[in-house]
Design a protein around this nucleic acid. Structure first.
Lengths: 152, 152
DNA sequence: CGGATATATGTGTATATGCACTTTGTCAAG
DNA sequence: CTTGACAAAGTGCATATACACATATATCCG
């Protein structure tokens, strides 16, 4: 008895994830504001801090971000002297992005603010639940989503 | 034995939701592309379809979207004749956004593409799991997230 | 009525996002 | 060495996002 097998628009997975992303981003951004960084920028600095210098492509991959999006997102960081972008010695097509001293300093400041936001969020949402949520979201990211134009 | 009580940056809830949103949006957008709509635009038309004309503020609220963001997101839709924006008779400060005939037609086209994307996603991720995920994301949206500047 | 206050929306500015297309550099086959 | 496939990054364009500030209207109260 599939009374209503038609997909309900309230149940759009894409909309729900995007809405939640807007909501949680505004929250974290409030805390990061004092450091002068946005959440996206903080994510970039974090990866560079813990993974060391990376090329644009490699950095984009770990950030689950389009290459061209990242290419533009690093420009304000470079302008403010938080990262340095230099051509790779091994492959002159590639560019290496690395954290500067100023970038490390800024990261440490933002890190404190981030910790407060993270703790505050989990206080409201639940630490265990947040952990479960992240696991489910990582599964989304890992899921093989074939394109609309797939053949075979 | 809290060996490592320091929050791990890999566990940033904000980053994880945003990354998943980028990933899933690209997937749904591939399917919607044939209709000439983006996922955000499809969401807007969907709400207008099922809730009837709404003011900017009311529409922004149901979309979990900043008022000013929505104000700009409806402009391409108005330009393409999919929605009509008119001053409210009751309150001249307010504007009512409503779906046009062309908007309804476009919505029906996009609806088919959306259904395929939704089904394809749930085929890969699991229908039950997707349902659970949406419930957890709605809880994020519903969670009272006090600002960084909260007092008392 | 008239001013204080609250509400609905618009604008300026800056970042975020990604597709299609282009440019530049690498590398292997001939 | 040359050429052709491939790989890394840049550019043009359009939309998405939201804060701070500005404007217009409504509403309440003395």
């Amino acid at each position: 008895m599939p009374v209503d097998k038609v997909a309900n628009f309230e149940d759009c997975n894409c909309f729900t994830v995007r809405a939640a992303a807007r909501h949680i981003s505004q929250f974290y951004d409030q805390f990061l504001a004092s450091s002068g960084l946005r959440t996206t920028q903080f994510s970039i600095l974090t990866q560079l801090k813990f993974r060391g210098p990376l090329t644009i492509n490699a950095l984009a991959e770990v950030l689950i971000m389009d290459r061209t999006t990242l290419g533009r997102n690093i420009l304000p960081l470079e302008r403010d002297g938080l990262v340095k972008i230099e051509p790779s010695a091994a492959d002159r097509r590639a560019k290496e992005v690395r954290l500067t001293k100023a970038g490390e300093k800024r990261f440490e400041e933002a890190r404190k603010a981030w910790s407060v936001a993270q703790a505050r969020f989990e206080g409201a949402y639940g630490t265990r639940r947040a952990s479960d949520l992240r696991a489910m979201l990582r599964a989304v990211i890992a899921s093989e989503l074939e394109g609309a134009d797939h053949r075979a």
